[in-house]
């Protein structure tokens, strides 16, 4: 095991500036999502809002939670979890979307 993950033992130093950049991007996206919500897009509103939320959370997960530099097991864990959750949602709507 020791050979495959030594890189994970030493913290990957991310410059302060990078974090601040990510924060600025997150704030911008927040303002965008608020702005967009005032535009009348009918049922597209919620989809756009969720897409922006997904973009924001990707930034948080990859940089703030440093998954970008995490070992591969965490990547797989995260993908499995997200897939599981998405499956739960889709299958719940296998009932509700036909009601």
């Amino acid at each position: 095991m020791s050979h495959t993950q030594d890189h994970a033992d030493e913290p990957h130093l991310i410059p302060y500036g990078t974090y601040i950049g990510i924060w600025l991007a997150l704030c911008m996206l927040t303002l965008v999502t608020v702005g967009v919500s005032y535009a009348d897009m009918r049922h597209m509103t919620i989809i756009v809002a969720l897409l922006i939320a997904c973009a924001k959370s990707t930034l948080v997960v990859l940089w703030f939670m440093h998954v970008k530099f995490e070992n591969r097991a965490i990547w797989w864990f995260l993908i499995a979890t997200i897939l599981t959750y998405v499956t739960f949602v889709i299958l719940t709507f296998a009932d509700y979307s036909f009601r």
Partner: peptide, 9 residues
């Protein structure tokens, strides 16, 4: 991040 748009927007 998900609560905000779903509840407020």
């Amino acid at each position: 991040i998900f609560l905000f748009p779903l509840i407020y927007l």
